[in-house]
Amino acid sequence: MKTRIIAKLDVKPPYVVKPVHFEGLRKVGLSAELAKKYYEQGADELIYIDIVSSLYQREILFEEIERAANELFIPFGVGGGVKTIEDFSRLFHSGADKVVINTSAVQENPDIINEAAKIFGNQAVVVNVEAKKWDGWYECYTDCGRIKSGRDVFEWVKEVEQRGAGEIFLQCVDADGRQRGFDLRLAKKVVDSVNIPVVVASGAGKLEDIKELVEYANPSGVAIASLLHYDKCTIKEIKEYLRNNSIEVLK
C-alpha cells in the first residue's frame, strides 16, 4: 500500500497558521490559496483543522471550509470544534469527505463516534489524537494541546477503533511544529495497536524525517505542515525523495 502524503492546514480562519508546540501562531497564508497550492503540488489528501474553534467555543465556519474545498479533487478531512451529528452533516455538505473529531469525543461524549460511524460509515470518522508524553505514558490532550483528558493514548486509540472510528490522526504535542523529527516510538506503538489506518503528523523538519518515520512505523499516511508552509520543499520533492528511497508513493 502506498504511503499517503497529506498536507495539514492548521487554520485560524481565514488564515493557515503554524503553531510551535501548538502555541505562538504565525500566519502562513489564506487557507483556500494554500489548499489549492498543495493540491497542485500533488498532495494525496488535505487535512484542515480549525484549531481555535473548540478552544474559543465558537461556531464552525462552514463558508471557509467550502472555499478551501472548492478546487480540490482529492480527499479532504476537516475538523475543529465538531460536537454534534449535525456538525458532521454540515461539514460533508461543505465539501468534507471525512470529519475529524477530538475534544468533544475525548472530553465529553465518546458515543458520538459510534453514532457518526453508524450514520456516515466508519471511513468518514477520523479521530484526532493529540498525544502528550509523560514519564512512562502518553496522555490525550485536546484544544490544541492545552487541556488534559486523563486518558491514555494507547487505550484510547483501541477504544475509538472499537467504537467505529475509521482512521486515527496522530499528532504529538511535544514534537509539533518543532521540525526535529517524529516521535517514532509513539507512532509505531499507535500503528501497531489498531487495525485501522493511522496518519502521523508532527515533526517533519527534513526529508529524512519522513523516510525514517515510514521505515520505522509504517503509517498509512504522513501529514506535513511546516516543511511545506515555509517552502522548504514541495510535495513533489517529498515524493521523489521517498520513491528514490524505495518507499512507495503515488506519482
Binding site: 502506498k2 499517503r4 494525496d44 482512521e167 489506518p197 499516511g221
Partner: peptide
C-alpha cells in the same frame, strides 16, 4: 490481511 477501512490510492 491489512488495515480496514481500505483507504488510499490503488
Amino acid at each position: 490481511d491489512g488495515k480496514v477501512p481500505h483507504v488510499g490510492f490503488n
